[in-house]
Amino acid sequence: MEAAIEEESKNLRRGWTTGTCAAAASKAACLALITGEFPALVDVTLPGGQRPAFALAIEEKGSGFAKAGIVKDAGDDPDVTHGALIMSTVRRGPPGTGITFKAGPGVGTVTRLGLPLPPGEPSINPVPRKMIAQAISEVCHGEEDFEVEISVADGEKIAERTLNGRLGILGGISILGTTGIVIPFSCASWIHSIWRGIDVARAAGLDHISGATGNTSEKAAQAHHVLSEIALIDMGDFVGGMLKYLRSHPVPKVTIAGGLAKMTKLAQGMLDVHSKRGLADLEALAKVAAEAGASADLVARIAAANTVSHAFQLAGESGLALGDRIAALAWKTAAKALHDPDIALEILVFDRQGQLLGRTEFTPSDHSEPLSA
């Protein structure tokens, strides 16, 4: 998957994380607070040593504060925060307090355990906090006590397009980034949200989570098991990304739920089930149908089907339980990635209407075969 991502993104323009923008805005605001002047350009040091420079979108000074803002450029990545105005308001803090952080309008507050920050803290992640502190240290001339308030224009509305609400981050977006750089189509933020979802579920003491490839399968799996929202992991196409994290952060029971095409790809050995990583193989699906007892005529019609959904329709009309066979094969692919006797794995296969067409029983993932449903 990493190789495919690198090939996709190598000719695309990279961008900057919200953490980088917040650090640059904080440095500019701190400089203005101390000297009375905003810089024409402000540069910051990234974790990898790079030093990008930014122009300020807003500058404001008042009694005891200075405020600067930078418009986030995510490059060619389809980032929901692309174009967002990231602002920092810096004030002097009480002696001995060091740098303290505050969530301004549009920045969320942590309300659940399991995240990198405790409940009650502004959702400004640890690496951005370090970047902000370093940026301020470059201009503070020995002063060490500052209150830094990060805000994002329309951040609460932007957050509706993220998983923050499910993770218990309320009131706005998170200030994120581990490298300071946005790599186009790396999907790093999605992978990290999967991990944080697992962390929150574990911290809440849940013994069962469900990772789904899409909204229909997520709702269907939730109804099937009567799961709470915290138990739902928006896995998307990244089956492998979820399973690999579970190896070191286990949950006793794991459900993988998905639609026909994506579960067929998982059954064919693909842990990244995005359509760009390869289409489901109808010839291979026909072979599975043959192994499940399909007639020669049905096998031929499945091989010539227009889509995976069409193939399943043909199987259903002939009374062939193709979904159960796909679920069993998908289980074997996922179980190989987990391979943990203490994690029981289940596969649920749904059609576009949320109807269950195939499943396995929960089976310890170190077994060679799943238990039949």
Rank of each mutant, 00 (worst) to 15 (best):
S193C: 14
P184W: 13
D154H: 05
C187A: 11
L163I: 12
L167R: 12
G93E: 12
F146W: 11
H192V: 13
F146Q: 08
L167D: 03
H192P: 00
D154S: 12
A188I: 15
D79G: 13
P116C: 04
I150M: 14
S193W: 05
T81L: 07
S137H: 05
A188F: 05
G96F: 03
I169Y: 08
A135P: 14
P94S: 15
D73I: 05
G98S: 08
I70F: 02
R161V: 03
R91L: 03
I132T: 06
D199N: 10
C140V: 05
P105K: 12
I183N: 15
K130M: 04
V148Q: 04
T109R: 05
S137Q: 15
E160I: 01
R196E: 13
P78E: 07
A201M: 11
D73R: 07
I150H: 13
I136S: 03
V200F: 14
G106E: 01
F146C: 10
L163S: 03
V182R: 00
E160C: 14
G96P: 03
M87C: 08
D73F: 08
T89G: 00
H82G: 09
N125H: 12
D79A: 05
A135V: 11
R129S: 06
S151I: 06
L113A: 12
I194G: 09
P95L: 11
I181V: 11
I99M: 06
P94I: 02
G96V: 03
P184T: 03
G177L: 02
S193T: 15
G75F: 06
I99C: 07
L85Q: 11
G108R: 04
P95A: 15
V110W: 01
